[in-house]
Design a protein around this nucleic acid. Structure first.
Lengths: 239, 239
DNA sequence: CGCATGTTTCGGCCGGCGCCGAAATGACCG
DNA sequence: CGGTCATTTCGGCGCCGGCCGAAACATGCG
């Protein structure tokens, strides 16, 4: 059961990525979002049993990591190194149009704050996650995240009722690898609730036709007081 | 005959690298050195005809570039992007031991001056090539290099007799892609002679058990007077 | 020109692997 | 405990592609 990720050859690793179905799955995971085996099968347009075989191989090779959640299995890229290799291969496949590192002005906005499906990502999400941990509202340990009692109270005051946990199968709180920051941020129902409520309060506003988010002055203030978000979260090396 | 390097898929590129024979050839080319089809076949431990097929595929995909020289064909990596992708895959295959970028103090010495087979590489070699071109001793144009008459005299004074050119089949002067500087430097018999004579004169000294080279004060002086090597060639952005 | 060497093309063999259908396992649910 | 759903395992089919032998260019040399 030991994943034995160290004894690989370049050819083995590249060969794994070199299958269209597997490459599609890996590309789908490049967003940092963890996806279930079924979702990945749909992305790759293959049957579930074929996808299962592919996922097992990539798992054994150390390209992917998995965590079980009920009868689902969430697969994600095992490490930022995998994402880096994928990026390098993409650059190669695209015919090498870029010359310098991919940090345009528009990308800067995305790196600062953006949506990742239904929750926040980017430096904002990282800083917020860190602040919540620092205040003892959330504890994070190797890929898992839990809401403390103090956190439940704080989120209640914020306007989030996390009590009706059993109404949905979605996990209350889990982590999601942040693509630009290479660190996990909060996802799950808590992450979604934080974003939805922040938007409702006018604290953050989605930029039209983009995944970028703007944090309003009221948001800076509110997030600071409610969760201890540091004032300098916009800095490159915040956190 | 247009190489059509832009229409590739990630899976296609990765699939090409994902064959043991091809991966070995690409690894052998990672030094920046251009190798012949036969040498690459030997590296990959396959017959020449099999290697030829592999090389043609990688050429068509834009991973490799080739230049003919007599009845040899020198293959090299088509671009630094290819080397970058290979590096990312190596890091993955090795099991991701490193955390930050690979520029340690020891690597700095290698980037400054090192041997590449039998000639010089690194910033020293780049600066020296530039100086030779600036003085009109050598002309370089798209991958080829030639020694001028003035150059022949200068090298003669330096102690290199390049007259017995036909004794060996090795090209007198050709370029070699410098891995750390991403620019071509001088190789061939001229490059080998420059290194050998410099060592003999005590101008440069190989560091034991390493490919690194040390340039002595006498070497700084001698290379400056003989070939116009600028005094500040050690600077990061020299050239 | 004939020979040697480096490289490519052609043809055929064969193993590996991606694919799916069927069925087993495990988890949730009433 | 049966029913459903997500996932995995098993078995077998089909084909892509790597491999080599033989032969055909291409180049250099005497």
């Amino acid at each position: 059961m030991c994943s034995m990720a160290s004894g690989n050859t370049i050819a083995e690793v590249a060969g794994l990525i070199g299958d269209p179905a597997r490459a599609n799955m890996l590309s789908a995971l490049m967003g940092g979002q963890a996806l279930t085996a079924g979702e990945l099968a749909r992305v790759a347009r293959i049957t579930a049993q074929t996808a299962s075989g592919h996922l097992a191989k990539m798992l054994a090779a150390g390209l992917l990591a998995v965590e079980r959640q009920g009868r689902h299995r969430y697969y994600r890229l095992a490490s930022p190194d995998v994402a880096e290799a994928m990026q390098a291969l993409m650059a190669l496949a695209a015919g090498a149009p870029r010359r310098h590192h991919p940090v345009g002005p528009r990308d800067m906005a995305l790196r600062r704050a953006r949506t990742c499906y239904d929750h926040m990502a980017g430096r904002l999400a990282i800083a917020l996650s860190d602040a919540l941990v620092a205040r003892g509202y959330v504890v994070m340990a190797d890929g898992a995240a839990l809401v403390t009692d103090a956190g439940r109270d704080a989120f209640q005051r914020f306007g989030l009722d996390l009590k009706d946990a059993h109404a949905t199968r979605r996990p209350l709180c889990r982590t999601c690898l942040d693509w630009s920051e290479r660190r996990p941020h909060l996802a799950g129902r808590l992450g979604a609730g934080l974003l939805a409520r922040s938007v409702a309060l006018g604290w953050v506003a989605p930029v039209p036709h983009s995944r970028a988010l703007t944090v309003t002055p009221a948001g800076d203030d509110g997030l600071h007081h409610a969760f201890g978000l540091p004032a300098d979260w916009r800095r490159e090396d915040a956190g």
